[in-house]
Design a protein around this nucleic acid. Structure first.
Lengths: 341, 341
DNA sequence: GAATCTTGCGAAAACGTTTTCGTGTTAATA
DNA sequence: TATTAACACGAAAACGTTTTCGCAAGATTC
């Protein structure tokens, strides 16, 4: 393996000191023009690049930020990452992505690893298992150690840090209200277990909308899907009853897409007999047939906001730095799966 | 900001040398039990963790590998990343993900940055622009500098390194043959410009299948989509002609999904009047209606293979190390978009 | 001709770790 | 009692860089 060229080797070549070489390459006035030219030419020829590890160690910063997400095969998260990456690169930062796979243990492992000097700050969306356990000491440790932290989407109230969240309640409200507006009388929600906070919040919005429009909240129409079991079977039940709903609000794309498929099996036409609206404007929503009306989350924008907050925290040595929570508003996208008014 | 605890600080606390502390924490026999206990307790209390940067510098390796992909909002690439990440973590490696956004310049930038000691090896799928330009010196430099490199999916023949590729020709052949088998007489292909090698290869498979079954290759049925212009418009043309095809092979999911949508606009029923088959088993294929028959690429497995090759190269100091090209075979997945025989 | 200033470079510390090699003290052996 | 062995620790180098400070030689000033 070819050895990397270092200051030391250049110094040896010209029989000067390492500091001289370093200064010459930085075009310092301390070094004679003649020597500078020679050293630069030599360095250029061998494609000299300062070793990042050494720089990081010396500067006590890495110009790298870490992201911990529950999973990467997921349109929303990749959108957020794109947004983060764009701004980060613009500001000269690199991005290290880790996956918790929704596991508490992996989340802790990843944080420990990132916290050891490798990154200047961390952006995280917390794993379902962590939410379920309610075990947050790893976040507290991080903050205690002075490492800037931004949470996005799935955030934890009791951890005090910068946050970027979707207005989930409002999104759920908008979606439900849309179904009401187009005349749906019996509206079901396909949501997550309560410990998944975003699911719970969207459900909250759903219930608020019903109440505000004097519609009854029926527990039988609130289907909390358990990912650990057969999702299709759980969704199918909605249509198996004798008086199925005429509107469905699904808290994500997948549930919505499955609902549309199942409806077809029961000869229920979307959108004529049933209107379906999802959450998150991903590929499925765009390319399904009928295409899916949905609540757009603006993941890209969310990522941008998160990294901006992180970088300002990194750059600030204020003792009275103020954390903020940015709420990204949602928008309704009308497509084919909800009937016209 | 809380200062990180270091060996130096622990040494000061006990008025011993740094080396003593280091040895004590590693349970060296050189240190008395009494002192070891005290130091360990102290270190535990303050959650001491060796600084990664210092270790990396000393060990001249980082236990981190870099991935450069064209874009992250893409099901196939995220699958590959998942596969890489799984094995990497198992072997104690971390993963740094960079995006070239299909840009040559960003690809070079990312490689330069990763090559500077930050990672022990790199896995890359090359950007379209790089393929178009045919400018590969950054890869040669990398190899010249002794940094292990694995290419996957979009690879370059003239660069000698480990590679993992889909059997694109065979995939294209299988897909086309399937359409022939179910009785399609006029089969179109929606493919990429020729410089995108995977598109060209799938097209090759398509043409081979036609030839082998004594069907004419008609240039009018070979639609090379240019991503820079309106994709829908380009695909729509297929159906605008008076005698539209009864079979379409699309080299990716998106083209397939759009084709199905456009067919519907022209009142062409899928699969009765038209059979459509895609490439890559992503979410769209699964959740579209009708669900899409497709060629499965096994991205997860591909990622696993890529990282395995990389790690063995990293671990080997053989001078006569042999590079290999692993070909991942494709499988047909039959769904609703292609009619039964 | 002495004092000062400029030029051009080197020494050394610092970042945090690991590891080899010494070295002084005490205990065991001949 | 003299030699050796065991024990417990410290010094220093190494990884590659940047930067402050010091210093010698020559040039300039009065």
């Amino acid at each position: 393996m070819k050895q990397k060229i270092t200051l030391k080797k250049i110094a040896k070549e010209f029989e000067v000191s390492i500091s001289t070489v370093s200064k010459a390459l930085k075009d310092s006035h301390e070094i004679s023009n003649e020597l500078k030219e020679k050293i630069k030419a030599f360095a250029d020829y061998y494609h000299y690049k300062p070793n990042s590890l050494a720089l990081n160690l010396r500067n006590q910063k890495t110009k790298t930020i870490g992201i911990i997400i529950p999973e990467i095969v997921h349109h929303f998260f990749t959108k957020v990452i794109s947004g983060i990456e764009y701004i980060a690169n613009e500001k000269g930062y690199n991005v290290m992505i880790c996956m918790s796979n929704e596991s508490y243990e992996k989340e802790v492992l990843n944080m420990d690893m990132l916290a050891n000097g490798i990154v200047d700050g961390i952006i995280v969306s917390v794993a379902k298992e962590t939410e379920e356990k309610g075990e947050y000491s790893h976040f507290k440790d991080l903050i205690y150690n002075g490492i800037p932290l931004v949470m996005f989407d799935r955030v934890i109230d009791e951890i005090i840090c910068n946050k970027v969240i979707t207005n989930d309640i409002d999104g759920g409200y908008l979606a439900t209200k849309h179904l009401i507006n187009i005349g749906c009388k019996k509206i079901a929600i396909l949501t997550t277990p309560d410990y998944v906070t975003v699911g719970a919040l969207r459900n909250q919005g759903y219930q608020n909308a019903l109440s505000d429009h004097n519609m009854q909240i029926n527990e039988d129409l609130i289907i909390k899907i358990d990912d650990k079991h057969d999702i299709e079977k759980q969704i199918k039940k909605v249509f198996a009853q004798k008086n199925p709903p005429d509107g469905i609000f699904a808290v994500n794309e997948i549930y919505a897409a499955i609902a549309m498929k199942k409806a077809k099996n029961y000869n229920i036409n979307v959108p004529n007999d049933l209107s379906v609206i999802g959450f998150t404007d991903g590929l499925i929503s765009q390319y399904s047939t009928p295409s899916l009306s949905t609540v757009a989350q603006h993941g890209y924008h969310m990522g941008q906001k998160a990294i901006e907050l992180l970088l300002t925290e990194i750059d600030s040595q204020d003792t009275d730095y103020q954390y903020e929570t940015t709420i990204i508003e949602t928008d309704l996208i009308f497509r084919e799966s909800t009937s016209k008014v």
